[in-house]
């Protein structure tokens, strides 16, 4: 049964698994609170609309209304997730880290750090050119195509441009531990986005 849980990336640290040091990311999943239940009869599919992320004080009126109807405290965002197993599907129900199975791997989705208009070396791992011996353009892309024959640049040719701030999924991360008391999930490896960013943990 598919499970999706939203949380806040707190940051990275390391733990020792036996003698081995393991780099981990700590994600805090404050209970995701159900705001609305979507049913096949009414909406054509079954899902839960949940309030996720950190608490906040202010919201605009239309969105605040959705929270108030369900008597749920204001949160960072509303998201739609599959109906969680073993959870009573009604407004106000809480989805917690207890839904996750530490013995199985998980996928983590986040919005990667925005890098603005990035050059070709940062964006596409180009090698650049010589730094010394009188060379110019150390970070330029170099040739981007042939001459008269195609007389055009290949579609999709890697060039400089906007990089980052996109939805990125990291798959098959090991769950090192789960702390229900502090709502923490500790996952091996790195996770997209800045500390404090909203991430989604998915398990099949």
């Amino acid at each position: 049964m598919a499970v999706a849980l939203y949380g806040t990336k707190l940051g990275m640290t390391r733990v020792y698994d036996g003698e081995e040091a393991v780099p981990v990311t700590v994600i805090q999943c404050l209970p995701n609170e159900v705001v609305e239940v979507k049913t096949p009869e009414k909406h054509g599919f079954a899902a839960l609309k949940v309030a996720v992320g950190r608490r906040r004080r202010k919201l605009n009126k239309p969105i605040a209304g959705e929270y108030q109807k369900a008597k749920v405290a204001f949160r960072e965002a509303l998201r739609e997730v599959p109906v969680a197993p073993g959870i009573e599907a009604k407004p106000g129900a809480q989805l917690t880290v207890a839904l996750l199975d530490a013995s199985k791997r998980c996928d983590v989705v986040g919005i990667s750090k925005g890098r603005g208009f990035a050059g070709v070396m940062k964006r596409h791992n180009f090698a650049g050119q010589y730094a010394s011996h009188g060379h110019m353009g150390e970070r330029r892309p170099g040739s981007i195509g042939a001459r008269m024959d195609p007389a055009r640049i290949d579609p999709g040719h890697p060039m400089a441009g906007h990089y980052g701030h996109e939805r990125v999924t990291v798959r098959n991360l090991r769950i090192m531990s789960i702390d229900p008391e502090n709502h923490l999930v500790v996952v091996k490896g790195a996770v997209p986005g800045p500390n404090g960013g909203l991430v989604e943990i998915k398990q099949a």
Binding site: L10, G11, V24, V26
Partner: peptide
């Protein structure tokens, strides 16, 4: 660094 990270690493100390 977030203070809760300590609770995660405590067992590894």
């Amino acid at each position: 660094m977030h203070p809760l990270l300590d609770t995660v690493t405590r067992a590894s100390r």
